[in-house]
Nucleic acid binder design. Sequence first.
DNA 1: CTCAGTGTTCAGTG
DNA 2: TCACTGAACACTGA
Length: 263
Amino acid sequence: MPELPEVEAARVMAEGVLLRRRIEAVAAREDPVVFEGVSPRRVARALRGRRVQALRRKGKHLWIELDRRPWPLIHFGMTGWLFAYERAAERPRHWRLELALDSGRRLCFSDPRRFGRVRLQHDPLHESPLRDLGFDVLEGLPPAALLGGILSRRQAPIKAVLLDQSLFAGVGNWIADEALYQAALSPRRPAASLSAAEVARLRARLLAVVRRAVAVEADSERFPRGWLFHRRWDARQPADAPEHIVRETIGGRTSAWVPARQK
DNA sequence: CTCAGTGTTCAGTG
DNA sequence: TCACTGAACACTGA
Protein backbone atom coordinates (compact mmCIF):
# COMPACT_ATOMS: atom_id res chain seq x y z
CA MET A 1 0.00 0.00 0.00
CA PRO A 2 2.79 2.40 0.63
CA GLU A 3 2.81 5.73 -1.15
CA LEU A 4 3.83 8.93 0.61
CA PRO A 5 0.88 9.12 3.06
CA GLU A 6 1.21 5.49 4.11
CA VAL A 7 4.95 5.85 4.66
CA GLU A 8 4.41 9.07 6.62
CA ALA A 9 1.84 7.28 8.80
CA ALA A 10 4.37 4.51 9.37
CA ARG A 11 7.03 7.10 10.22
CA VAL A 12 4.82 8.73 12.85
CA MET A 13 3.93 5.35 14.34
CA ALA A 14 7.58 4.28 14.42
CA GLU A 15 8.54 7.60 15.99
CA GLY A 16 6.17 6.90 18.86
CA VAL A 17 7.79 3.53 19.46
CA LEU A 18 11.45 4.33 18.82
CA LEU A 19 12.26 7.95 19.55
CA ARG A 20 14.95 8.32 22.28
CA ARG A 21 14.75 4.59 23.01
CA ARG A 22 17.75 2.28 23.08
CA ILE A 23 17.77 -0.73 20.78
CA GLU A 24 18.57 -3.67 23.03
CA ALA A 25 18.32 -6.53 20.57
CA VAL A 26 17.99 -6.99 16.83
CA ALA A 27 16.70 -9.95 14.88
CA ALA A 28 17.36 -9.94 11.14
CA ARG A 29 16.25 -12.73 8.88
CA GLU A 30 18.52 -14.09 6.17
CA ASP A 31 17.28 -12.52 2.92
CA PRO A 32 19.71 -11.37 0.21
CA VAL A 33 16.84 -9.77 -1.72
CA VAL A 34 15.40 -7.46 0.93
CA PHE A 35 18.75 -6.69 2.56
CA GLU A 36 20.49 -4.91 -0.29
CA GLY A 37 24.25 -4.60 -0.26
CA VAL A 38 24.47 -5.57 3.39
CA SER A 39 24.14 -8.77 5.37
CA PRO A 40 21.43 -9.11 8.01
CA ARG A 41 24.19 -9.77 10.53
CA ARG A 42 25.86 -6.48 9.75
CA VAL A 43 22.57 -4.61 10.07
CA ALA A 44 22.00 -6.23 13.44
CA ARG A 45 25.48 -5.32 14.62
CA ALA A 46 25.09 -1.70 13.49
CA LEU A 47 21.79 -1.24 15.33
CA ARG A 48 22.31 -3.12 18.56
CA GLY A 49 22.95 -0.86 21.52
CA ARG A 50 22.18 2.36 19.61
CA ARG A 51 19.83 5.11 20.70
CA VAL A 52 17.25 6.48 18.23
CA GLN A 53 17.49 10.21 17.54
CA ALA A 54 15.00 10.72 14.71
CA LEU A 55 12.69 9.05 12.21
CA ARG A 56 12.88 10.65 8.79
CA ARG A 57 11.17 10.28 5.43
CA LYS A 58 11.69 11.45 1.87
CA GLY A 59 9.26 10.36 -0.82
CA LYS A 60 8.45 6.74 -0.01
CA HIS A 61 11.70 6.09 1.86
CA LEU A 62 12.08 5.98 5.64
CA TRP A 63 15.26 6.04 7.67
CA ILE A 64 16.22 5.93 11.32
CA GLU A 65 18.86 8.32 12.66
CA LEU A 66 20.88 6.72 15.43
CA ASP A 67 23.53 8.07 17.81
CA ARG A 68 26.14 6.46 15.59
CA ARG A 69 26.29 5.85 11.83
CA PRO A 70 25.54 3.98 9.63
CA TRP A 71 21.76 4.23 9.69
CA PRO A 72 19.07 1.88 8.38
CA LEU A 73 17.08 3.01 5.34
CA ILE A 74 13.83 1.26 4.49
CA HIS A 75 11.76 1.18 1.32
CA PHE A 76 8.37 -0.52 1.57
CA GLY A 77 8.00 -1.77 -2.01
CA MET A 78 4.46 -2.94 -2.77
CA THR A 79 3.68 -4.78 0.46
CA GLY A 80 6.18 -3.71 3.11
CA TRP A 81 4.91 -2.47 6.46
CA LEU A 82 5.93 -1.74 10.06
CA PHE A 83 4.35 -3.43 13.06
CA ALA A 84 4.68 -2.69 16.77
CA TYR A 85 4.06 -5.26 19.48
CA GLU A 86 5.40 -6.56 22.78
CA ARG A 87 6.37 -10.19 22.45
CA ALA A 88 8.54 -11.96 19.85
CA ALA A 89 5.74 -14.48 19.40
CA GLU A 90 3.64 -11.72 17.82
CA ARG A 91 6.05 -11.33 14.89
CA PRO A 92 4.10 -11.20 11.66
CA ARG A 93 4.70 -14.14 9.35
CA HIS A 94 6.78 -12.24 6.79
CA TRP A 95 8.98 -10.29 9.20
CA ARG A 96 12.47 -9.35 8.02
CA LEU A 97 13.94 -7.09 10.72
CA GLU A 98 12.87 -6.71 14.34
CA LEU A 99 14.11 -4.21 16.91
CA ALA A 100 13.56 -4.82 20.62
CA LEU A 101 13.62 -1.59 22.64
CA ASP A 102 14.50 -0.76 26.23
CA SER A 103 10.80 0.06 26.68
CA GLY A 104 9.91 -3.59 26.22
CA ARG A 105 8.23 -2.89 22.91
CA ARG A 106 9.26 -4.26 19.52
CA LEU A 107 9.07 -2.82 16.04
CA CYS A 108 9.45 -4.89 12.91
CA PHE A 109 9.59 -4.48 9.16
CA SER A 110 7.56 -7.10 7.32
CA ASP A 111 7.20 -7.65 3.57
CA PRO A 112 5.42 -10.66 2.04
CA ARG A 113 6.21 -9.81 -1.54
CA ARG A 114 9.84 -8.79 -0.90
CA PHE A 115 9.92 -5.80 -3.22
CA GLY A 116 10.90 -3.79 -0.15
CA ARG A 117 14.54 -3.00 0.69
CA VAL A 118 16.57 -2.53 3.84
CA ARG A 119 19.88 -0.72 3.38
CA LEU A 120 22.57 0.57 5.70
CA GLN A 121 24.02 3.99 4.85
CA HIS A 122 26.17 6.70 6.39
CA ASP A 123 24.40 9.61 4.71
CA PRO A 124 21.09 8.49 3.18
CA LEU A 125 20.13 11.86 1.68
CA HIS A 126 23.33 11.95 -0.35
CA GLU A 127 23.51 8.32 -1.44
CA SER A 128 21.51 6.30 -3.94
CA PRO A 129 18.56 6.05 -4.12
CA LEU A 130 17.56 9.15 -2.09
CA ARG A 131 20.12 11.29 -3.89
CA ASP A 132 18.20 10.77 -7.14
CA LEU A 133 14.76 11.65 -5.81
CA GLY A 134 13.02 14.83 -6.89
CA PHE A 135 11.07 17.08 -4.52
CA ASP A 136 9.03 15.50 -1.76
CA VAL A 137 5.42 16.21 -2.76
CA LEU A 138 4.32 16.90 0.82
CA GLU A 139 7.11 19.26 1.78
CA GLY A 140 8.78 20.48 -1.37
CA LEU A 141 6.32 20.83 -4.23
CA PRO A 142 7.63 23.74 -6.35
CA PRO A 143 5.48 26.75 -7.30
CA ALA A 144 3.18 26.28 -10.29
CA ALA A 145 5.34 28.37 -12.64
CA LEU A 146 8.45 26.29 -11.96
CA LEU A 147 6.46 23.06 -12.20
CA GLY A 148 5.04 24.16 -15.55
CA GLY A 149 8.54 24.70 -16.86
CA ILE A 150 9.57 21.21 -15.84
CA LEU A 151 6.47 19.58 -17.33
CA SER A 152 6.83 21.48 -20.58
CA ARG A 153 9.95 19.41 -21.32
CA ARG A 154 8.23 16.04 -20.86
CA GLN A 155 6.36 14.36 -23.70
CA ALA A 156 5.26 11.26 -21.79
CA PRO A 157 1.65 10.99 -20.53
CA ILE A 158 1.14 13.12 -17.41
CA LYS A 159 0.28 9.94 -15.51
CA ALA A 160 3.73 8.48 -16.23
CA VAL A 161 5.46 11.74 -15.32
CA LEU A 162 3.60 11.95 -11.99
CA LEU A 163 4.96 8.49 -11.14
CA ASP A 164 8.55 9.56 -11.88
CA GLN A 165 10.26 9.59 -8.46
CA SER A 166 13.11 11.74 -9.78
CA LEU A 167 10.45 14.47 -10.07
CA PHE A 168 7.46 13.78 -7.80
CA ALA A 169 8.93 11.81 -4.89
CA GLY A 170 6.17 10.04 -2.99
CA VAL A 171 3.52 9.87 -5.70
CA GLY A 172 2.28 6.39 -6.50
CA ASN A 173 -0.48 4.89 -8.60
CA TRP A 174 -3.52 5.81 -6.54
CA ILE A 175 -2.34 9.35 -5.71
CA ALA A 176 -1.61 10.07 -9.37
CA ASP A 177 -5.05 8.80 -10.43
CA GLU A 178 -6.78 10.72 -7.63
CA ALA A 179 -5.03 14.02 -8.39
CA LEU A 180 -5.77 13.71 -12.12
CA TYR A 181 -9.42 12.87 -11.41
CA GLN A 182 -9.85 15.85 -9.10
CA ALA A 183 -8.05 18.14 -11.54
CA ALA A 184 -10.28 16.83 -14.35
CA LEU A 185 -7.26 15.95 -16.52
CA SER A 186 -6.87 12.88 -18.69
CA PRO A 187 -3.95 10.67 -17.59
CA ARG A 188 -3.05 10.33 -21.29
CA ARG A 189 -2.35 14.00 -21.86
CA PRO A 190 1.31 14.60 -22.74
CA ALA A 191 2.76 16.48 -19.76
CA ALA A 192 3.95 19.25 -22.07
CA SER A 193 0.41 19.84 -23.33
CA LEU A 194 -0.90 21.16 -20.00
CA SER A 195 -1.70 24.87 -19.93
CA ALA A 196 -0.48 27.03 -17.06
CA ALA A 197 -3.97 26.94 -15.55
CA GLU A 198 -4.07 23.16 -15.81
CA VAL A 199 -0.66 22.81 -14.17
CA ALA A 200 -1.83 25.04 -11.32
CA ARG A 201 -4.98 22.96 -10.94
CA LEU A 202 -3.07 19.69 -10.90
CA ARG A 203 -0.55 21.04 -8.40
CA ALA A 204 -3.33 22.22 -6.08
CA ARG A 205 -5.21 18.91 -6.22
CA LEU A 206 -2.04 16.84 -5.77
CA LEU A 207 -1.11 18.81 -2.67
CA ALA A 208 -4.66 18.64 -1.31
CA VAL A 209 -4.85 14.87 -1.82
CA VAL A 210 -1.49 14.19 -0.16
CA ARG A 211 -2.14 16.56 2.76
CA ARG A 212 -5.58 15.13 3.41
CA ALA A 213 -4.38 11.53 3.24
CA VAL A 214 -1.55 12.34 5.67
CA ALA A 215 -3.99 14.16 7.99
CA VAL A 216 -6.07 10.99 8.37
CA GLU A 217 -2.98 8.80 8.82
CA ALA A 218 -3.51 7.27 5.39
CA ASP A 219 -6.64 5.51 6.65
CA SER A 220 -8.58 5.20 3.39
CA GLU A 221 -11.89 4.82 5.22
CA ARG A 222 -11.45 8.42 6.32
CA PHE A 223 -10.74 9.74 2.81
CA PRO A 224 -13.48 12.15 1.66
CA ARG A 225 -16.56 10.52 0.16
CA GLY A 226 -16.15 12.10 -3.26
CA TRP A 227 -12.69 10.66 -3.92
CA LEU A 228 -12.20 8.35 -6.86
CA PHE A 229 -10.24 6.13 -4.49
CA HIS A 230 -13.39 4.51 -3.12
CA ARG A 231 -14.56 3.48 -6.58
CA ARG A 232 -11.33 3.06 -8.53
CA TRP A 233 -11.59 -0.71 -8.83
CA ASP A 234 -15.35 -0.82 -9.38
CA ALA A 235 -15.24 -2.54 -12.74
CA ARG A 236 -18.90 -3.26 -13.19
CA GLN A 237 -20.85 -0.16 -13.91
CA PRO A 238 -22.71 0.39 -17.14
CA ALA A 239 -20.59 2.05 -19.81
CA ASP A 240 -23.13 4.84 -20.06
CA ALA A 241 -23.13 5.65 -16.32
CA PRO A 242 -22.44 9.35 -15.78
CA GLU A 243 -19.06 8.75 -14.13
CA HIS A 244 -18.08 5.53 -15.87
CA ILE A 245 -14.61 4.44 -14.75
CA VAL A 246 -12.20 3.11 -17.35
CA ARG A 247 -9.16 1.01 -16.55
CA GLU A 248 -6.24 1.07 -18.91
CA THR A 249 -2.49 0.78 -18.88
CA ILE A 250 -0.80 4.17 -19.11
CA GLY A 251 2.88 4.67 -18.37
CA GLY A 252 3.17 0.96 -17.62
CA ARG A 253 0.60 1.04 -14.79
CA THR A 254 -3.11 0.45 -14.63
CA SER A 255 -4.91 3.77 -14.46
CA ALA A 256 -8.49 4.23 -13.32
CA TRP A 257 -10.08 7.33 -14.78
CA VAL A 258 -13.36 8.92 -15.87
CA PRO A 259 -13.22 9.99 -19.53
CA ALA A 260 -16.51 11.89 -19.20
CA ARG A 261 -14.92 14.19 -16.67
CA GLN A 262 -11.17 14.12 -17.38
CA LYS A 263 -10.10 15.94 -20.53
C1' DC B 1 -4.24 -22.32 -13.49
C1' DT B 2 -4.00 -17.44 -14.77
C1' DC B 3 -3.80 -12.74 -13.91
C1' DA B 4 -3.12 -8.39 -11.76
C1' DG B 5 -1.22 -5.58 -8.15
C1' DT B 6 -0.96 1.65 -3.90
C1' DG B 7 6.87 -0.12 -6.73
C1' DT B 8 11.46 0.12 -8.78
C1' DT B 9 15.15 -1.09 -11.96
C1' DC B 10 17.21 -2.24 -16.14
C1' DA B 11 17.73 -3.29 -21.09
C1' DG B 12 16.50 -1.73 -25.50
C1' DT B 13 15.02 1.92 -28.68
C1' DG B 14 14.90 6.31 -30.94
C1' DT C 1 22.91 11.56 -23.03
C1' DC C 2 18.23 11.65 -22.45
C1' DA C 3 13.35 10.39 -22.60
C1' DC C 4 10.59 6.74 -22.92
C1' DT C 5 8.68 1.81 -22.93
C1' DG C 6 8.08 -2.73 -21.49
C1' DA C 7 9.72 -6.65 -19.04
C1' DA C 8 11.46 -8.52 -14.85
C1' DC C 9 11.49 -9.01 -10.02
C1' DA C 10 8.56 -12.08 -5.87
C1' DC C 11 4.54 -13.38 -3.91
C1' DT C 12 -0.49 -13.53 -2.83
C1' DG C 13 -5.17 -13.76 -3.54
C1' DA C 14 -9.19 -13.38 -6.62
